[in-house]
Design a protein around this nucleic acid. Structure first.
Length: 598
RNA sequence: GGCCCCAUAGCUCAACUGAAUAGAGCAUUUGACUACGGAUCAAAAGGUUACAGGUUUGAAUCCUGUUGGGGUCACCA
């Protein structure tokens, strides 16, 4: 698709060739949207061209501007300020551009299929505690990046890897056995993941008490931590689990199933699904064969105590453990194994891991070891490293009880949405079910937008004392804009005015604001590409906000239904309908729905 | 201590990867015709882009150093 900026770039390259006889790469030409304080649509920065023109910036700009004006039908004006050539397109040009967008319909902004298969792993929770705000960022990011990559033409597979085994689960199980009295989600009325999480906390309390007791008896802190009875019991339980002890495995299955029920409810509330869920209990043995292979290749080494290591010191990193002395594997081992399994099973072109930036080192090592093992696809692993969500007092710490629980937060958002809507009183005639659906939509819109609008790489701050905003640069602002457009279109329909594409024509007189809207709408596919390249749904969020804001400005000083010229009125209906469509598309990528009224 | 990341308005975030006077929202102050939906719009005020050098016609952006913050270097995952 030819966009105005690459149109200018290619024409400017022709101009340079004609005027100065130089061949210049269009990629080297800088074309940007003209800043509002200047006249023009797009701006060519002429500084880089001075070497070939051998003239001053003003003269160079003027010559190129003049050439463009007389050699293209699309460009009908220009001005030069300092080293900037501001170019204006004709009214006909904008009309045709807009007609092209309207004609593209649903396909607008959906890039052609690349045939590439991309796996995105995200969420990846432990089964010993409920999901919190940090998980929410992970989940929303994983979901929206997946949607964004789909819009970029890839086949995307969304997967979850549940950490369902290990000492931490045994701790919850142990505490439940000791103090639970057979409590279940049904008997307690608690959501399963919260119930199990409570026993994890109960374990920690028992453990702390025992350590203190031992220290009072004169034991050092270190020894006390190692010798606390519950700690030993938990380790014993893990051993039993690994040996397949029937009772232990049965309890493990039961408690994990409670957790899954709980997680499913949260995923459901967030509108998230996966194409496949992996369980570590089924993958933790993977990778051992690769360790053997590495030993044979001479890139790993075995110490006298039986441990296996990969020495990365020559790469500026440390020695990395791959097998314990007893031959059991560690986190890295199974990650090596699962990567190999997935790439071969699904013939992946790319694998994205949505994992916090605290694991940057882990993924650096993972890729490096896979490369040493000779896997060319190691380069197609991408760690989508995102920043932590911090509270005003710093990091969330489960031990200190400062985590923001996902379910609590969702409920709180729902209440706020309900209160706000009720105060405004515009939906009083909606039935209860529709209202519930709407409150859900708005609260999710606010939460999701709040999280996604921030550049994934950056640490972000959440203040539980200040509720997430519903005004300004927010999800509800965009939802409101959409509801407003739909309202106008409804009223038009009541008057028998349907949005009719046939009114579009080359000579429709466009106002400056209308041109701005067309320009912005036209940027959408480029934003999809840009966001996809950067793995950043934030690009799409900020774009949607800009478009909504631009529409609201337009709306305020342009009559639509009150316009007397029927041709203009009909054109405007098509225009705002297109704005609404693009907003829906953009927000859909973020997993945010837009209501018709609110 | 080694390595990695970060620092932009009082607060939360942008800035097309080097361009014009660094932009939005919140909070503050002020204004908007009986409203095509006021969860909106317009305006004011708010900045030495942590600091010091350097490269460049041009730096929040690239390089070096300093300060402050975070992460990581587990027989945890």
């Amino acid at each position: 698709m030819i966009t105005p900026d690459n149109f200018i770039a290619s024409k400017a390259a022709e101009a340079v060739k004609a005027l100065y006889g130089a061949d210049i790469d269009t990629a080297a030409l800088q074309v940007q949207v003209t800043r509002k304080e200047f006249e023009g649509d797009y701006t060519l920065v002429v500084f880089p061209l001075l070497k070939v023109s051998r003239k001053n910036p003003e003269a160079t700009g003027t010559e190129i501007g003049e050439w463009l004006k007389s050699n293209t039908g699309e460009i009908d004006g220009y001005n030069v300020i300092k080293g900037f050539l501001n170019i204006s397109f004709s009214n006909v040009y904008w009309n045709r551009l807009f007609a092209g967008i309207v004609a593209a319909g649903d396909g607008f902004g959906r890039l052609p299929s690349t045939g590439r298969t991309v796996m995105v792993e995200f969420s990846s929770p432990n089964t010993n505690k409920p999901l919190h705000l940090g998980h929410i960022r992970n989940i929303l990011l994983g979901w929206s990046v997946s949607r964004l990559l789909e819009a970029n033409g890839h086949d995307v597979m969304k997967v979850n890897l549940v950490n369902d085994r290990g000492i931490h689960i045994c701790k919850s199980m142990l505490a439940w056995l000791k103090t639970g009295n057979g409590e279940t989600p049904e008997s307690s009325g608690k959501k399963g993941d919260h119930l199990v999480g409570d026993y994890y906390v109960a374990y920690s309390n028992m453990y702390k008490a025992q350590v203190e007791e031992l220290m009072k008896g004169g034991m050092s802190k270190e020894d006390a931590e190692k010798n606390a009875p519950v700690q030993k019991e938990a380790q014993e339980m893990l051993r039993k689990w690994e040996q397949g002890d029937e009772e232990t495995v049965a309890l493990w299955k039961k408690m994990n199933s409670w957790v899954y029920d709980g997680f499913d409810k949260t995923y459901d509330a967030l509108g998230i699904t996966f194409d496949r869920t992996y369980y570590e209990s089924q993958t933790y043995l993977l990778g051992k064969a690769l360790v053997q292979k590495g030993l044979e290749m001479g890139i790993f080494e075995k110490d006298p105590d039986g441990t296996v290591w990969c020495d990365l010191t020559s790469d500026g990193l440390d020695r990395k453990l791959l097998l314990r002395g007893d031959g059991t594997s560690v986190y890295m081992t199974q990650d090596l194994g699962t990567a190999e399994q997935r790439f071969s099973e699904y013939n992946l072109d790319e694998h994205i891991y949505v994992v916090g930036n605290e694991q940057n080192y882990h993924f650096q090592v993972l890729k490096l070891i896979l490369k040493k093992l000779g896997f060319a696809w190691a380069d197609n692993i991408h760690h989508l490293s995102y920043g932590m969500v911090e509270l005003p007092e710093g990091k969330m710490k489960s031990r200190e009880g400062t985590v923001v629980d996902a379910d609590d937060l969702l409920e709180k958002m729902y209440t706020t949405a309900k209160e706000t809507s009720s105060e405004l009183g515009k939906i009083d005639n909606m039935d209860a079910e529709a209202q519930d659906k709407l409150f859900r939509m708005i609260s999710l819109g606010a939460l999701k937008y709040f999280i996604i609008k921030v550049d994934p790489k950056k640490t972000m701050l959440f203040d539980p004392k200040e509720s997430i905003d519903f005004n300004g640069n927010t999800g509800p602002f965009i939802q409101y804009t959409h509801a407003r457009i739909r309202s106008i279109l409804r009223k038009a329909a009541e008057r028998g005015l349907k949005t009719d594409k046939s009114v579009l024509s080359d000579d429709m007189p466009l106002s400056a604001k209308e041109v701005r809207l067309v320009k912005l709408i036209n940027q959408y596919p480029a934003k999809i590409a840009e966001g996809g390249e950067a793995y950043s749904p934030a690009v799409i969020a900020n774009y949607a906000y800009e478009l909504a804001k631009e529409f609201n400005q337009y709306y305020h000083d342009t009559p639509i239904l009150r316009e007397e010229d029927e041709r203009l009125l009909k054109f405007r209906l098509v225009l705002i309908d297109t704005v609404a469509d693009v907003l829906v598309k953009a927000m859909d990528i973020l997993g945010i729905s837009l209501p018709d009224r609110m």
